[in-house]
Design a protein around this nucleic acid. Structure first.
Length: 921
RNA sequence: GCCCAGGUGGUGGAAUUGGUAGACACGCAGGACUUAAAAUCCUGUGGGCAGUAAUGUCCGUGCGGGUUCAAGUCCCGCCCUGGGUACCA
């Protein structure tokens, strides 16, 4: 019987679904929660890169199942978001419709791969039954504040009681910068609206005027992690800084816990580092500089020891004190500069990072220790929203201050000496002795730093401070396809709609574009009002709202009364293994941790880290062919669709290369993107080569898993994706290699068949066969547990090659082998298992145990080396002592011959590894 | 600039705590079967030199040093590729 994967796969796909084989319920077994980052269901379906992580998590889930765990392995769709909406704008179709179609397509593709998802738990973030609870969590955030004393979130009612009792003088909680100090008496005297406005400054979900990333093209604000180098990540449109009234989440309140929590989770180092850098903790000192008795400017520095090197102060152009500082003579220049800065886009600011600009305010500050006059400047290299928006410039020891001082010919005072003269370049290292610094001269950097920090505090000129780079997360988007806020406005003040009225569903509207007045699309729903009277919030929540807690909802997806049932939550707990791409390091993964900590604070969940272990699967890249035509056109040709040459122009400046004289080397030098290209052929008309690129339509290198399954079957696809290389690594896809694993599966299949019939014997296995089996069990177990799936595949190949050579048809050997391979190739294994055990599924069997004594050798093939270079191998029994081994070695003819005329210095015998003889020649 | 990964044959990649570099595949070459092709099976396959051959010998894990009986693996200094971040004081 030939291996007919189509028949087998269709049969079992159907059967598994009928039997609800992958449905998970609470039982007495130990739990294991394996999760994949749920996909956004795009219109173009899956390519072979997408399922890589799903296959890996599936193998691990099935392995855990075989090891006796109760495994939760759900899947769903992150279905709110921009692409569906953009598509809706273009075609006028409701995003719900396209989202549904796309997710159905994804689902069927995923099922074809044989993934053991419990589809009864499927969730979609755009489903009102799901976003009801996203809105509910938002309400919790709105109704909470962060108490620094208890270092946790508390209900806002606690804060109200405190205000009624003592005002806010002794309240230590993160709040908006412009929050005034008030007494209990004042609090009580205020109107409802005033009180609400104050409370808003403390809430964890709050509305405020803040600097936001505004993307004109997308018509919405974006969070910091959605912007890169001044462009939106989605679409690559320019982003500018704008002050707007927006919803934000006070993630900064959790900065310290988000940082320290990293120590107790098993995540890739690179993601942890990215989160650390993103949170950006830096401790320093806030120092007040007096301005000629009028004002005080607060500056933040991490290098207080350089205080005597301060030769000017710089304020950000947006700094609020500028108007009062600016002298009459400078006013015009200053205002002009401020205007210029306000018109600069984020992109301009970044691209002109090396150009130095600024203006003198005309005012002078007084140095707190030397009492010298220090000019106060403004410049856009100082950011308004970090620290205090003002710095003390130490040009000798900071490269930006140095450039500024050079340009405007300001004084440069070196205060750290390490034998380096600050002349053309500043000295940035933190090594050396303090000089030119009055009473701290001669001190080390750390001593001086401490001394100044303490002095500043004593003299009431400042205080120690820890600053974070992390900003509060802008939480509103001026878009349609997202969760509506459960918020309405009464007298311009936001109020929440009651829990019983959730979900607040998205109204249908006739166009998904912003209104003529520039309001978000939801403003088009004219009759969409609370109690027909109060307008709802017109913004929607960002894409990451739904994904910040979906892993909790999988535990109890149908619950209409609670966001999750406590008993179920207690059983399943947090995610044991989370597999997904590294691109979510500072977005989704940070927000999920934040929401988890928040829910933990409210005792709604019992864990404060969502994902115990994370593995980032590497991207699968595609091979693209390109043809460069000497007469002026550059084309990409699909490598994987050789027979249907498709071409497209890409950007090439033909003037870069001399016509008709083009040689590969010169061509390579002229086009950086082809540095890694392989050149296949050239003549006077064209050059043709291959490059490795991301899989993308524009490179014509997309490989569809459906095509692979059609030709080789899902088991081959699964096995090949694992065989390509280490899970975490970026690696190119090359379909040619799949014949290797396909042949392996056929060989495996043939072990069970003879003369076209299923055939196994009940004979007892030989020593050699036992050795093969038990070593394989050991190796597979070990490699699965270390996520080394590529070496698992080699191990299977080696085992099958050996068993084939031994002509093994013994059930005692082959049956356990089915179980071992079943996480990788579930279909073919289920089929073979069914022939032996017709009443059960291999999925519900038990992972075999190995006996180490069956594969440990009692003779070892020792490599024997002379001076570290291997000369020969010798079989030596492993129960001999060193003297006995030496005897055997010296009696070997070849060794004797080599040693003739030399003296042996020493002999090194590493048991079970190597023997090395060190000689003098 | 700074932070994090990584660099091994023609290709993807193997190599537990330093211990036979190149497992396993792809590709390629040769052979078997076939009228032929495909499929399948068998053999060989890091490079150089010597030899009809068995074999011998030297060089080989980005580059240059070092530690060690022994280095792909550890240490120091570079180069390159990929990812993150970017006036964060």
């Amino acid at each position: 019987m030939d291996y007919n994967f189509k028949k087998i796969e269709n049969k079992w796909k159907k059967k598994w679904e009928e039997d609800k084989l992958f449905k998970t319920e609470i039982n007495s077994k130990k739990k294991f929660y394996a999760l994949d980052m749920f996909p956004y269901p795009s219109g173009s379906g899956l390519h072979v890169g997408h399922p890589l992580g799903y296959i890996a998590s599936d193998i691990f889930s099935r392995y855990k199942q075989l090891m006796g765990f109760n495994v939760l392995h759900p899947m769903g769709f992150d279905s709110f978001g921009l692409p569906a909406e953009q598509y809706a704008i273009a075609t006028g179709q409701h995003p719900e419709k396209t989202t549904k179609e796309n997710s159905e397509k994804y689902k069927s593709q995923l099922k074809n791969i044989g993934l053991s998802f419990d589809w009864s738990r499927e969730l979609k973030t755009s489903d009102p039954n799901y976003y009801k609870w996203t809105q509910w969590i938002f309400k919790k955030l709105f109704n909470s504040y962060y108490c620094n004393l208890g270092d946790k979130a508390l209900p806002i009612s606690v804060l109200i009681k405190e205000f009624e009792k003592n005002g806010n003088n002794s309240v230590e909680s993160p709040c908006d910068e412009d929050t005034p100090k008030f007494t209990a008496k004042e609090w009580k005297s205020w109107s409802e609206k005033d009180k609400q406005n104050i409370l808003l400054k403390y809430r964890l979900a709050f509305l405020s005027d803040s600097w936001v990333n505004w993307c004109e093209e997308l018509g919405t604000v974006l969070a910091n992690d959605e912007v890169k180098e001044g462009l939106s990540i989605r679409g690559g449109y320019p982003v500018e800084q704008k002050k707007m009234k927006q919803w934000s989440l006070r993630i900064t309140a959790y900065a310290n816990r988000l940082l320290s929590g990293l120590n107790k989770i098993d995540w890739p180092n690179s993601i942890k580092e990215q989160q650390k850098n993103w949170i950006g903790k830096s401790s320093g000192v806030n120092i007040l500089f007096e301005i000629e008795k009028k004002n005080k400017i607060s500056v933040f520095t991490t290098r207080p020891e350089t205080i005597f090197g301060v030769s000017f102060l710089v304020l950000s152009p947006e700094h609020e004190l500028i108007d009062s500082l600016c002298t009459q003579t400078q006013k015009k220049k200053i205002n002009k500069y401020q205007l210029e800065c306000s018109q600069k886009s984020e992109l301009d600011r970044i691209s002109n990072i090396n150009s130095v600009s600024g203006e003198f305010t005309g005012s002078y500050a007084i140095h707190p220790f030397s009492q010298e006059k220090i000019p106060v400047w403004i410049s856009d290299y100082v950011l308004p929203n970090y620290g205090s928006g003002a710095i003390m410039a130490v040009p000798a020891h900071d490269s930006r201050d140095f450039k500024f001082a050079k340009k405007f010919k300001l004084e440069i005072v070196q205060v750290i000496d390490n034998g380096y003269k600050v002349d053309e370049e500043p000295y940035l290292e933190k090594e050396g002795k303090i000089i030119n610094s009055s009473f701290i001269n001669g001190l080390s950097i750390s001593k001086a730093s401490e001394k100044i920090a303490n002095l500043v505090k004593e003299k009431n000129m400042g205080y120690k401070l820890i600053n974070f780079r992390l900003r509060d997360a802008i939480f509103s988007r001026q878009r349609y396809w997202g969760e509506p806020f459960p918020v309405f406005y009464k007298d311009e003040t936001p109020y929440l709609i009651p829990d019983e009225e959730l979900p607040l569903k998205l109204p249908s509207i006739n166009s998904y574009l912003p209104t003529k007045e520039g309001n978000p699309p939801l403003a088009r729903a004219e009759n969409w009002k609370y109690k027909t009277k109060y307008r709802y919030e017109h913004s929607t929540m960002p894409g990451w709202a739904g994904s910040s807690w979906y892993f909790i909802r999988y535990i109890d997806p149908e619950n209409n009364l609670k966001f999750v049932d406590e008993k179920k939550l207690k059983y399943w707990g947090n995610v044991d293994l989370y597999i997904g791409g590294a691109e979510h390091a500072t977005g989704h993964l940070l927000y999920s941790r934040f929401w988890t900590k928040f829910l933990y604070d409210l005792s709604l969940i019992s864990f404060d880290e969502p994902f115990q272990k994370i593995i980032n699967q590497g991207m699968i890249l595609g091979e693209s062919c390109f043809v460069y035509r000497i007469n002026g056109e550059n084309t990409y040709v699909s490598y994987n669709l050789k027979d249907k040459y498709k071409t497209t122009k890409i950007h090439v400046d033909i003037n870069l290369v001399e016509k008709n004289k083009l040689k590969i080397k010169e061509f390579k030098n002229s086009r950086k993107e082809y540095n890694n290209a392989k050149f296949i052929c050239e003549n006077e008309n064209y050059i043709c080569g291959k490059t490795i690129e991301k899989m993308s339509k524009s490179f014509y290198n997309v490989v569809n898993p459906d095509d692979i399954i059609e030709k080789y079957g899902a088991d081959s696809l699964r096995l090949y994706e694992m065989f390509l290389g280490p899970l975490t690594q970026y690696k190119p896809w090359n379909t040619d290699g799949i014949t290797g694993v396909y042949n392996f599966i056929k060989k495996f299949w043939n072990l069970f068949h003879q003369d076209g019939k299923f055939y196994l014997t009940q004979e007892d296995p030989s020593k050699e066969e036992k050795e093969i089996l038990h070593y394989t069990i050991h190796k597979i177990k070990n490699d699965i547990e270390t996520f080394s799936f590529n070496t698992c595949v080699s191990t299977f190949m080696i085992a099958v090659n050996k068993l084939k050579k031994a002509q093994c048809s013994k059930e005692k050997i082959l049956k356990p082998l089915i179980i071992l391979l079943s996480p990788f190739c579930p279909f073919v294994c289920e089929e073979l298992w069914n022939k032996i055990e017709p009443s059960s599924s291999v999925y519900n069997s038990t992972f075999p145990k190995y006996d180490i004594n069956l594969f440990i050798k009692n003779e070892i093939n020792y490599p024997v080396a002379i001076n570290g270079k291997r000369k020969l191998n010798m079989m030596i029994a492993n129960n001999l002592n060193k003297n006995e081994i030496e005897k055997i070695i010296y009696s070997n003819d070849k060794i004797k011959q080599i040693l003739t005329g030399s003296t042996v210095k020493k002999i090194i015998i590493i048991p079970e590894k190597i023997i090395n003889i060190v000689i003098n020649k």
